[in-house]
Nucleic acid binder design. Structure first.
Lengths: 223, 223, 223, 223
DNA sequence: CATGAATGAGTCTTCATTCAT
DNA sequence: CATGAATGAAGACTCATTCAT
């Protein structure tokens, strides 16, 4: 093995290591930001605190993120992706029946709100009322989720052979669903410690939803 | 009219005028704060800007309000009272029937969200994600509204002779209602300019609600 | 008694009352200022607090005193006069002997430092390090006291027939005396609660002084 | 010299330079504060002015000092150390005889009051009557100096074989010495430009002191 | 790429002083 | 004279961002 080759190998190894380290650094910073934003609030958290908790320097934060806002925006999208995967990962593999919806509520409440209290706080509280830039990204993520729900509702409706209704009604329904779950996330998981019985709430939520959807879609009682 | 009497009248007039002026100043400041918080955002608005718009000095703001936070908190409670009066003023004079609920949605969307876009923005966006103090007051107001809705739901349920259900179910229902309307306020009135047809949305919302409530309360189809 | 006379009488009475009230108001304000300056410090006391404690309005303070500084300056001169009367009132009626000095130390420590802790604090702490204006007045008062002491020392020296020494030596002696008592006022009465035995300290102070003066004036042992 | 070694040297040099620069910045700021506090007064000096004079930014001042008060406190301790070194540096190397005290007065007046007019003003005027925090540190420094003097007096007394006297008498003596010199610092060096003849004053001061101490310690006439 | 000291614009807040009533 | 609400200049302090090493 000649010197050139050895060098190449070394570069290769070190490049990989650097990429790993870089990825690790970015994660550290995001995790630190998430923890502190949730704990102390976005405005009350300084970049220095984030850097300290992530065990990097202030300058390093600015290598990987444009500015403080950018940290929040990245967290918003990260959380949006997690929620999307959580909700649709299972759903896509299902029969797209109306019953498949049954699980989504419980998954959101258990696997998101309960399991990720800090993400919950950031998405439903700390990312609201900051700058126009942050608001824009939050809006995109929520509209994405709303649209996803709307499309699934349409699929389900078609699968059960319901009569066609205007697109705007599906949108409205999706807005309702998002609002209901957002409010539960705030009311039960941020303001109160956590609800007594998630399963019960989840069941009742679905019961409410089916009744409402059934009435709105004019498909009679969906069970 | 003798001198004594005239003097009394003069005192009375000047006292009244002072009170009017004081009230006017407080209102000016709150209006200016409301306008600027909605327009530029709470964090991006300085006390000096508020004072300028209200045509008072910076010091005067601090005579009537403890600090910047206090302005936001006062606005939150003011908006909470407005919403309460709007919703329950009419309802109390009604027969408390399930149909009386019909109007509430439309009133909220038309007389609050549409008529007071700045109050809407402040309550559903700018007052979120600030300090713990602000959050506490926002929480109080929303819990108040939620509790009010819960109690009305119970009254209506009793009036139609439905079978008794747990208190927590009414609370859950109220949380749903608040979440649905909050999300409509944000989605249709802050993010989009305004919905095409408020009447239609309002009608569909109630249809959804009746279906959902009916299903959840197990009272069969309420119509 | 005709109307005119009655009126005159009334005016006279009311004028007297007014003067009494005015004097009372000025005293109230000065007392309030003294108490608060000593308690919270000059810089940490606001005119509003002084007005509140004196049970007058903020505006009234400014009728009787040019500004906040003026309050402190008036207090400085008031205290200066009290100290002067305390020290020289008795001394003037004495035989101006060296023994007459004996009492002065004890009078200062007991009748000023111990009896007027607030005046002590204001004169030796709160009136120092403020503005050039305040400093100027404090300087005047202390130089007045220093000069008084110097003159008495000269009188005593003459009365015991000591040999003449330069004027500057008397001044130096007076500076020492002022410094010693000022430091006792601070050290024992402000920093420590109060000394264990004022009589003992007073006695030793005089013993020290007599020894020092005797040595400096070259008059041998003064007893 | 190989590369490795050069690199080490470079690191060493840059680290040293940084330390020098940091030390230099802290000194610049303290010097600027000292000059301005003495010239305009503590209250009349703004942080911005200090930063300007020190040729650093406002933020840099806050990197090295907690707040404005902290600047004054650091100056107080710095001055306290300078005075201590000035007084005891020479004394410790002496025979601890009563004559060794002779120089201390002159050293203080010449090498402190006359040579450091700004430090003199800060210690005896500007650091008085500010906040409780500042007062506490001033108290500590003066008590330290008083205790040092007291201990030296005891040593000298023992060295000349005087009869034992209570500890409190030494303390009182030390308080006198501090008070006399403090008052000279203020009277002659702050209020008057400077005394005509420091040597003469210094000589007389010691003469006074010896007489007073002699009398108080009951050791007879010390010459 | 990493560091972290330096920057300085930006803001809230205070409070002595004024003046219309 | 008395009042006390209004004034607004002044200043301490923060912290996101930069950049020389």
């Amino acid at each position: 093995m000649n010197v050139q080759k050895r060098r190449n190998n070394e570069l290769s190894r070190s490049t990989l290591r650097r990429q790993r380290e870089k990825q690790h650094r970015v994660s550290s910073i995001l995790n630190a930001a998430e923890k502190l934003f949730a704990q102390k609030g976005y405005n009350q958290t300084s970049i220095e605190e984030i850097a300290d908790l992530a065990e990097v320097s202030v300058g390093t934060v600015y290598i990987h993120f444009k500015n403080k806002e950018d940290l929040l925006i990245k967290l918003i999208h990260e959380i949006g992706n997690i929620v999307s995967k959580l909700l649709w990962g299972e759903f896509e593999e299902s029969d797209h029946s109306i019953q498949a919806f049954n699980n989504l509520g419980q998954i959101f409440l258990t696997n998101f709100c309960l399991s990720n209290p800090e993400k919950n706080i950031i998405f439903f509280r700390e990312s609201v009322g900051q700058s126009a830039e942050v608001e824009e990204h939050r809006k995109q993520v929520i509209i994405k989720i709303t649209t996803d729900i709307k499309e699934r509702l349409q699929i389900v409706q078609q699968s059960i052979g319901g009569k066609p209704i205007p697109d705007s009604s599906y949108e409205l329904l999706a807005v309702f669903v998002v609002g209901m779950f957002a409010q539960m996330a705030i009311y039960y998981f941020i303001w109160q410690g956590k609800p007594d019985d998630i399963m019960d709430i989840s069941y009742k939520t679905m019961s409410f939803l089916f009744g409402g959807i059934g009435n709105l879609l004019g498909a009679g009682n969906p069970h």
